[in-house]
């Protein structure tokens, strides 16, 4: 089964490499398995775009200006 997971990962990377790449205003992803709801992202967002709801960071896609402060601040690397 590990082989399937590895293959899926490789396919995903290849899929990204085969495209031109995401646009600069592409929505961020929050990995809910890694997010511990510490609220550091919410603290540093100057646009009020992040809120921790029931233990997970939730990013408002209309308010997020992709300043990436939350990405830099997240101690778990859960936002990308």
């Amino acid at each position: 089964m590990m082989r399937y997971a590895s293959a899926a990962l490789v396919l995903a990377v290849l899929a990204l490499c085969s495209c031109e790449g995401p646009a600069g205003d592409t929505q961020l992803v929050v990995d809910s398995e890694l997010c511990v709801g510490c609220g550091r992202c919410e603290e540093v967002c100057p646009y009020g775009a992040v809120e921790v709801v029931e233990g997970d960071a939730v990013i408002d896609p209309a308010l997020c200006h992709l300043c990436l402060r939350c990405v830099e601040e997240c101690p778990k690397g859960a936002i990308y």
Binding site: L9, A12, V13, A15, G21, P22, A23, Q27, V29, Y80
Partner: peptide, 8 residues
């Protein structure tokens, strides 16, 4: 359709 993000 474009790939937006990958993580591993």
């Amino acid at each position: 359709w474009t790939a937006a993000a990958v993580a591993g």
